[in-house]
């Protein structure tokens, strides 16, 4: 096994374990912390895919900003143990197994039908691939309209978050 493969399996197992922790742990704070760990492992996978800028953005935006917001709200609301719901056994896990089977089979079938999924990655990656310079250039030329739309969306997001969270207008 090469170093790349060892790292891939390490990051993959870490990401799957972190995401499982989100679903399995009872306390939402534990869920949030294991989701942060999963995001770090995913960032490692992005580095393996030569997407260095996306890896940094993943850590800064997801693990840094979004999850801090989640933890902030969780600690603001500070739910006690009885507010986390009854510890009852329900039909939900069975439903979950069924959903898991349906979703994984359909996604797997979709991906496997992709004609050359088992082909190796091209080895001659240009040095500029996935750098901040390439992404920035692309954002300012080819993808200028989506970039501006996203900035508009974020502005709407800021305003509406304030409007919704205010006690009264």
């Amino acid at each position: 096994m090469t170093v790349e493969q060892v790292l891939f399996y390490l990051f993959a197992v870490g990401a799957i374990a972190g995401c499982s922790g989100v679903v399995l742990s009872r306390n939402p704070i534990n869920s949030a912390v294991s989701l942060v760990a999963a995001f770090f492992f995913l960032a490692g996978n992005y580095v393996l895919l030569h997407a260095n800028f996306m890896a940094i953005v993943q850590i800064l935006v997801y693990a840094g900003a979004i999850m801090v917001l989640f933890l902030f709200v969780l600690m603001l609301l500070n739910q006690r143990d009885e507010e986390l719901g009854p510890r009852k056994v329900s039909i939900a896990p069975l439903l979950g197994m069924f959903a898991a089977a349906v979703v994984s089979v359909s996604i797997g079938a979709g991906f496997m039908s992709y004609r050359n999924a088992t082909a190796n990655f091209p080895t001659d990656v240009p040095l500029s691939f996935g750098t901040a310079e390439q992404i920035g250039r692309s954002l300012m030329t080819t993808h200028l309209l989506p970039f501006e739309l996203v900035s508009l969306l974020l502005l709407i997001g800021i305003v509406s978050a304030v409007v919704v969270a205010k006690r009264r207008l």
Binding site: F8, L49, L95, F111
Partner: peptide, 27 residues
């Protein structure tokens, strides 16, 4: 060596975990 398939299967696994959580959790 690593192929596209590895990453797609990891992606499908993570998506499935998220979908299962969406139907089983209540918070």
């Amino acid at each position: 060596s690593l192929t596209l398939e590895h990453y797609l299967l990891l992606s499908a696994a993570l998506f499935t975990i998220g979908a299962v959580g969406l139907v089983t959790r209540r918070n």
